[in-house]
Design a protein around this nucleic acid. Structure first.
Lengths: 366, 366
DNA sequence: TGAACAAACCGTAACGGTTCAGAACACGGT
DNA sequence: ACCGTGTTCTGAACCGTTACGGTTTGTTCA
């Protein structure tokens, strides 16, 4: 043990009361309701506490009695690097942390790897509610959280029965973006997307896998792309989609490589995240493709580095997303109806999108 | 409330036992020690539990009894954006989260803004230990955490009496970096640093403020720079140091602007973080200064974006740092002696450092 | 036949607090 | 002397669980 001066047995409120010859109530009051006892006595209590090394009422015991854990849980059933390496996810985390800080409650990251069926951590987390973020639809951890008799807010996920939900309209935002690309004249496009399911598939993802995706956000974005491109006369089967399980810039680069190797005539690469797009950008550079002259690249999320790189992307207010989730959860006490908050998104046209290179257009010419 | 089927009063282990006509112990065993009762009875218990909407033993009550909270606290007395916007800090967070996940315990972010004297959240956090990261030396929250009868691990901070500590040797690493810059021939340098104290000072920071810095890391890095440059015959008073309270890329840019406006003859900008360096890079571009031909820029931390930008920097294994802290804390149970883990760092020379522009060297010529 | 032992279940006592309805006392007013 | 009104402190119940040390029942084996 590395705490100095730890006595044989930690002092408790009761032992302190005994030492002082007062009731436990009084000691409790000394900490929680200073106006309930004389200043002198309170001072004496606090002094004795210091002398005995008593650091104040035990949080857990207090929680039991008051029925408040003083923390909300964040269920992140991801490979953690997924959550921490993506500035968009970190933004949500930050917003949530801010909301918690405002309310003076802690934010507990509840562990649960995907594919790991062990939901014990979810059941054992001492929290007053859960925020569920970026979890596959059928995850047992999500199920376990919903079982718990505490409120739950779902972020970036389809609304479940009476749950609260926060998220952008991924479909609408993606439609805007796709229309931008279509409007520029692109008909030969490729897509890079994030993990669609808990089983690794660092390869092309065909229709069935797309529609069966367990991650709502990816499913929604792909569906929106499909809808828009088909409306523009581009058969979706002709659009290659490359999936990556991990989510680093390098994964975006390798995905772009895989796609471009097989489909060199593609004029636009639509990525379902900025991270992937940044990787695609790097790969394009490596191949000597000029962006946007030779290749249009778009992202999604609007992270800082993307902005600095001039990426055409959809910006979503990630910080607000997290904040909204936190506020919703912390204010969920007495509310009866469930709430759904849809966040605004904004198409940000940067310097990575332009009409397709003319040479290529001949392929589609009359 | 948005939980469906919530009965008037939540079922408890006791009410479940009563309903079943068995003892509480048996119900408890059904959840915690399946081998202590017959499979049939266990099945009956679990079925009845489901029928009554009992989701398993209450975590808080369990914690009280077992004296394990099942979570470790992370004390981040920062403006939260500080912690979340810096990939280096996020890396530490990730490493810590990974260690916690391995151990199946939660990670609670304990709120406490700098300057906010309210340490209640620290006292009320139900955790089995604290990791203290990036907190000013004299912070009351740190004090409050140390008071609690749980182990504490300090990250990136000078070792306190018997505490465990994890961190790189900031001084040695900075000396290496400074020697690199000195070795290139730079004698007219400027420094951009992060917040030195809890009071905002977006301006030049003079010697007294530097030495009085409440943030160990910044103090150590500045001290190392001072030592190295003075050894190279550069009087430290002649080296302008600009401080920024916030820590975004834009802050780095504005700091660089402020410094270069006043000291246009500077040939190298040493930044105490990559984020600031990235901003400096942007500002250099804006001024039409070629890097490294006209201006050398260095960072610290080795974050991904810096690597992608080719920044000369010191890489430190942030993920390992977080992991090490977590492991140390979680294994701290019975240990008597305190441990100190010093992490390796690596000078990574990129494309942003080179000898000073010859024109300037005349100033120092014979 | 009965000792030895395992399996299945139970009762009680914590764990360390908070809370609420009073008790005890002091004080000023009538 | 009596009453009302605070102020200060107390007693006991309660929060929901698990640890510990049993008891009961049934089986095995010499």
């Amino acid at each position: 043990m590395n705490r100095p001066m730890r006595s044989r047995r930690q002092a408790t409120l009761a032992s302190l009361a005994a030492e002082l010859g007062v009731s436990r109530t009084t000691v409790s009051n000394a900490y929680n309701r200073p106006d309930q006892l004389s200043p002198e006595l309170r001072k004496r209590v606090l002094e004795t506490a210091k002398r005995l090394g008593y650091a104040g009422p035990d949080p857990v015991a207090r929680s039991l009695r008051t029925r408040k854990a003083g923390a909300v849980g964040l269920l992140l059933t991801e490979n953690l690097s997924y959550a921490f390496r993506d500035p968009a996810a970190v933004g949500v985390l930050e917003g949530l942390a801010l909301a918690c800080e405002d309310a003076g409650v802690g934010l507990t990251l509840v562990p649960g790897s995907p594919g790991n069926e062990d939901v014990a951590a979810v059941q054992r987390a001492g929290v007053d509610g859960f925020v569920v973020y970026s979890v596959p639809d059928d995850d047992p951890h999500l199920e376990a959280a919903l079982q718990r008799p505490v409120p739950t807010v779902i972020v970036d996920q389809p609304q479940l029965d009476g749950m609260d939900r926060v998220g952008p309209d991924d479909e609408a935002a993606t439609v805007d973006l796709a229309n931008h690309v279509v409007g520029l004249g692109h008909r030969q496009v490729g897509v890079l997307c994030m993990r669609l399911s808990s089983d690794r598939n660092d390869d092309f993802a065909f229709l069935y896998r797309q529609q069966d995706a367990h991650y709502h956000v990816q499913r929604a974005r792909l569906a929106a792309l499909q809808r828009t491109f088909e409306a523009a006369g581009v058969p979706w089967e002709s659009v290659p989609v490359v999936e990556r399980f991990d989510h680093h810039v390098d994964d975006g680069a390798s995905a772009a490589r895989q796609l471009l190797d097989k489909h060199p005539r593609v004029t636009a690469l639509i990525c379902t995240s900025d991270i992937l797009a940044l990787g695609a950008l790097a790969e394009a550079g490596r191949r000597g493709l000029r962006v946007p002259a030779d290749l249009t690249i778009t992202g999604f999320d609007g992270i800082g580095e993307a902005t600095r790189a001039g990426l055409t992307t959809v910006h979503q207010p990630v910080l607000e997303k997290g904040k909204a989730a936190g506020k919703l959860l912390l204010g969920a006490g007495d509310r009866v109806a469930s709430k759904v908050i849809t966040l605004p998104t904004e198409l940000r046209v940067g310097t990575t999108s332009a009409p397709p290179r003319t040479a290529e257009q001949h392929w589609f010419g009359p």
